[in-house]
Simulated assay, not measured.
Amino acid sequence: MLSFYDGFFLNLCVMITSLFVYKELVKKSSFAMQTVSTAIIKGLFGGLLAAVLMRFSIKTGTNSMIDLRIIPFMLVVLYENWLSSLLTAALIIFVRFMMGVSIYSFVNVIFVLVSWVIFYYCFKRIENRWVSIVVMLTFSNIVYTVLNVIFTLGKSFNLFLIVTYWIICILGGVIAVYMMDYLNETEIIFKRNNKYAFTDPLTGLNNVRSFELAFNKAKSRLEKENESISIMIVDVDHFKQVNDTYGHLEGDVVLKKLAAILKMSQGPNDIISRNGGEEFSVLLKDCSHEEAYEKADALRKIVENSFFVIKNGTTSIHVTISIGITTYNDTTIEINQLYDHADQALYAAKKSGRNKVCSYSQVVDPVSN
């Protein structure tokens, strides 16, 4: 048994460490998916944490001990589903009986089950979350106090024990919920940053980093297999005028609509990316130069004939695009020059009047093309 301060500090350390380990396991595994099996695992984890806290009971300075078993139980109710919380309750009851069968074992059954009802009622009915948490802990403590009075018949009622339990339970509960919220928020930020490391936040397309990874992977495959790969670079014509006339927010609307057209018009194996600004790229795997040219021209026509609705639906505008394309093992022999050659073809398309598709072969030999 530990002294009061040592025991309380140890219990907090155990809870915080366990919550951190739990969130790391959830973040790096399939536990984030809510299924029956994951609900069972999460419920068992909550019960295991409660059992550990029961093992490291806090000495109150009298012949009595208290623990924070109810806090993991409350956390499971708050953050998981009814099945997980029911399993946590069952495990708490089971562990208490394993520690010894006495009248207090049966008191624990009543305490846990009544607390479960209180927790779920507060969770469902009280909208303000922190008010709900305080009410949960308060009524759970009232149940603990009433049971203590009833089953001791008031003869060995220990006011110091009750007051101490109320203080550490509410304080420990608030700290545990705050820590859980902090870990959840950190996980959300981690996932968002991880997503935006490979995804363009405006359009939802791949970003430059994601494109480079896919391109390097494709190059490695081409070294082993004799396949063709094409790339098209797409740029919105006179996009600066759109921004200057309607504002950058409306320009973003145009870019998102163009991204949607790109996703709709390209195949499932094509890798579509936003390279920055108004420039996009499409990596066409196992695609001949003729097929790439046909796809590019079809895309150009779709955009040319589309309405781009801006200003909250009050204005429609037309935009056009210029596209440069090239194909490895056809118009481009060196795989590392593929992107540069497509970029040169795009420049030629813009220089020759825009709203055009230009192949790198037209850059190399403009007379014959």
Rank of each mutant, 00 (worst) to 15 (best):
S220Q: 14
W130E: 15
A342F: 03
D252F: 00
N355C: 14
K191F: 15
D237W: 00
K311A: 13
V135Q: 05
L53T: 05
I261E: 11
F280L: 01
S156I: 04
G267K: 08
F198E: 15
L53P: 12
L10G: 05
F31G: 07
D67C: 10
V367G: 00
Q241G: 12
N128W: 02
R300L: 02
N128A: 09
Y246L: 12
L283H: 03
E278F: 03
R209Q: 13
N184M: 12
F97L: 03
T138W: 05
L258P: 14
D237M: 07
L44Q: 02
R221I: 05
T62M: 07
T60N: 11
L12M: 09
F106Y: 15
T62S: 15
S265E: 15
I175R: 01
M15F: 00
T138E: 08
K27C: 11
S30Y: 11
A51T: 11
F56H: 07
T326N: 06
V208D: 07
C169T: 13
A218N: 06
S220A: 13
S115H: 02
H238K: 08
Y293G: 07
I118T: 08
K257N: 13
D6M: 03
T331H: 02
D200I: 08
V364L: 15
I71S: 05
A298W: 07
G154Q: 04
E223K: 08
N148L: 10
W166D: 13
L299M: 12
Q362C: 07
I272L: 10
V101Y: 04
L338S: 04
A214T: 03
L258A: 06
V134R: 01
C169D: 15
V14C: 12
T164F: 09
Q362S: 13
S352M: 10
K27I: 07
L2T: 10
A260D: 15
H341M: 07
V309Q: 07
V117D: 08
H341P: 12
C358V: 03
V234I: 13
V36G: 00
S316W: 00
Q34V: 14
